[in-house]
């Protein structure tokens, strides 16, 4: 049991994180053309709404929630110190979880019942669906059966995750947790590990820059003023866009 625990709770996270880091950087740097959200709305534009929208907003809320509980555990515990606030947080998160699950199931049904989509679906897509649906279901199961996860996540899982990231893995608290929670952890790291090999990679390139960039973009292959100046020497170095 100890070996298994060590493998799944220590080795797997490190393997997954290493694969994630190296793979994503490699794909971003050298395979730009293969980095796309691969939207299939163009081939089927009606049923997508009932899948994509609930799934994405659900996953954004829940991912941010997990991230906040990891980064600011004390704030979460302070927020949860009043039962009403705890209830609000837990119920909201559960609703978003349900929305995510409904979205995923709709997406799965849509993808495998629309004839055209067969031609833009690969095996990895199925793996992604299977992992995400299982993970969402397990997450909801834990939230329902082991109440007030936002509180015990902050006091139990945050130290574990912190120990992973500080390279001093400490699983003493996590090994005592129910197997469903362990499964949730294992699936989470597996999903992180397959990001470079699946369409999930598009979550790394959200168009945040769009918020502050000017609407119009003009690019120059060379500095137009400099190039006309007689003082500019002819150079083999390619000028940067200005």
């Amino acid at each position: 049991m100890n070996i298994l625990d060590n493998f799944f709770l220590i080795a797997l996270p490190y393997i997954a994180l290493a694969v994630f880091l190296v793979g994503s950087i490699y794909r971003y740097t050298y395979k730009g053309f293969q980095l796309s959200s691969l939207s299939s709305q163009f081939l089927e534009g009606r049923r997508l709404f009932y899948g994509s929208v609930p799934f994405h907003w659900g996953v954004i809320f829940l991912f941010t929630g997990h991230l906040i509980a990891f980064l600011f555990p004390r704030s979460v515990l302070a927020w949860n110190s009043q039962p009403v606030r705890l209830m609000i947080l837990e119920i909201t998160a559960f609703v978003f979880g349900i929305s995510m699950l409904i979205g995923l199931v709709n997406l799965l049904i849509r993808r495998y019942t629309t004839p055209r989509l067969k031609y833009v679906t690969n095996k990895m897509d199925f793996v992604v669906y299977a992992l995400l649906i299982t993970q969402t279901f397990v997450g909801l199961w834990i939230a329902y059966n082991f109440r007030w996860g936002s509180s015990w996540f902050s006091s139990l899982l945050t130290p574990y995750l912190y120990s992973i990231f500080t390279l001093q893995p400490d699983t003493s608290a996590v090994v005592l947790l129910p197997w469903t929670v362990k499964l949730h952890i294992i699936l989470a790291f597996t999903i992180i590990g397959i990001i470079p090999f699946s369409r999930l990679i598009h979550f790394l390139v959200p168009p945040i820059n769009y918020i502050w960039r000017p609407y119009q973009q003009v690019k120059w292959y060379w500095d137009k003023r400099k190039v006309r100046s007689p003082r500019t020497p002819w150079t083999l170095q390619r000028p940067k866009n200005n």
Binding site: F33, L35, S37, V205, P207, Q216, Q217, V218, K219, K224
Partner: peptide, 22 residues
């Protein structure tokens, strides 16, 4: 994603295929 731009030199509007994220 800022993949589309207008070329300054001749005004041709292009989509950078490496930056387009669909």
């Amino acid at each position: 994603s800022g993949a589309i731009y207008k070329r300054g030199e001749d005004g041709v509007v292009l989509i950078n295929q490496e930056v387009c994220r669909a």
